[in-house]
Computed example of a mutant assay.
Amino acid sequence: MTAGSARPALRRFPAAPWSPDSTQVSRRRFRALNLSMMLPLLVAVGVLLLVRQAQTVLDVVVLGLGMVAVVVAFERWTVGQINRVALPCLLVAGAVWPYGVLVIGGDPQAAYYALAVVSGLSVAQLPRHRAAAAVGISAYVAVVGAVGLVRHPDPGVSELLASVVIPTGVTVVLIGLMFPNKGFYDVMAELEEARERDAELAVMRERMRFASDLHDIQGHTLHVVKLKIALAQKLVHTDTARVEQELSEMYALVGDTIAQTKELAYGQRRLNLSAELENARNLMEAAGMRVRVDRRSEAGAGAIDLLAQVLRETTTNILRHSRATLVRIELTGHGITVVNDGVADDTLPELRGLATLARRVADEGGELTVRVEDGRFVTAAEFTAPSAARTDPPE
């Protein structure tokens, strides 16, 4: 493959999406607020109207049933379960209204109060046919009021207002006001669900980060130990001093891995880029590769840890998956590039470790790419964000 003869294979890893059940907590807070502020007001208004209109014990009982329907409907409405009691509450409130008009008479405020409140709470929460239900209830209120008006011995404008216009108008207004109220609660619920999804996503991403770091630490160490064991097996009968050296290095490496795992578990792990460069050089040279390191400038504070992880993962991939003889590592103030030969074909392998790191690099304002170019495998991490490009004193 020659330069310009074909477009190099390139994989750009996509950036990660932007990142106690808060929805249930918010619903409980809204419920407590409604029960403490609105329910006492509804009961107080209902009791006041009942005292003004009731004339007998039967009147108190019937109008009281309307108040019970109001309390039950409101309590269920605060927990989003109004549809379970909507029909029985509407039937009770609907029966109180004609009783107040046709039996009690006078100004039937207490009689239509229950129906207006219950219908206002119920209609907006219906899954369908809300407009038809609103029209039907309003028409029912108007028709019952008109029947009571016809039975009045000498109806006038005041009786028309008290029996038809005001009850119907109040019912229509309350039902109409609850539609935007439902929209407000729906928006709040969507926002809370979005926050909950973001929190779950953050937890999942943190778990993936932890798993990736654990893979970097232990996977890298295990592969190096495997190589050293293979070397020790070859030399066990010919160079015992070298075997003892390899065993000593494996012992130290395993101890260092245990320490890094503990640091990772307690959130104290920070990689040293200079140490990773030296470690990468030593490992690849021990595997028979020629390594050239070009360190032009120091990386920024926000990039050091991620660049060290990219270098470690790339080193592991070269040792495991390639037949490289020459590796070039170039470090600048904005990123790192690792190029190795020994590529069998132009097909990009599945690199899960680098894919996970790519999402973390993207979160910090950078980009991680891998590509096959002119028979060489290129891994490049580049940061463009100012915070990542900020330079530090040399290590």
Rank of each mutant, 00 (worst) to 15 (best):
L161N: 08
L161G: 07
A162R: 09
V164R: 07
V164M: 04
V164N: 09
V165H: 04
I166N: 09
T171Y: 06
G176A: 05
G176D: 02
L177Q: 06
F179L: 01
F179M: 00
P180E: 03
N181K: 00
Y185M: 08
Y185C: 02
Y185A: 03
D186T: 14
D186P: 07
D186R: 10
D186F: 11
V187I: 10
M188D: 09
M188S: 09
M188P: 05
M188H: 10
A189T: 10
L191T: 10
A194N: 11
A194T: 13
R195G: 12
R197I: 05
E200M: 11
A202I: 09
V203G: 05
R205W: 09
E206F: 06
R207L: 14
R207W: 09
M208P: 01
R209Q: 11
R209T: 08
F210Q: 15
A211G: 10
A211C: 09
S212Y: 00
L214W: 02
H215V: 07
I217C: 04
I217A: 01
Q218P: 01
H223S: 08
K226T: 14
L227R: 12
L227I: 07
K228A: 04
I229C: 03
I229Y: 00
I229V: 14
I229W: 02
A230R: 13
L231D: 14
A232K: 02
Q233K: 14
Q233I: 08
K234Q: 12
K234E: 13
T238D: 05
T238N: 02
D239L: 01
V243G: 00
Q245L: 13
E246R: 03
L247M: 09
S248W: 06
M250I: 10
Y251W: 10
Y251H: 14
L253A: 00
V254S: 08
G255M: 12
G255E: 14
G255H: 15
T257H: 03
A259F: 10
Q260T: 05
Q260S: 14
K262C: 04
E263A: 13
L264C: 05
L264N: 07
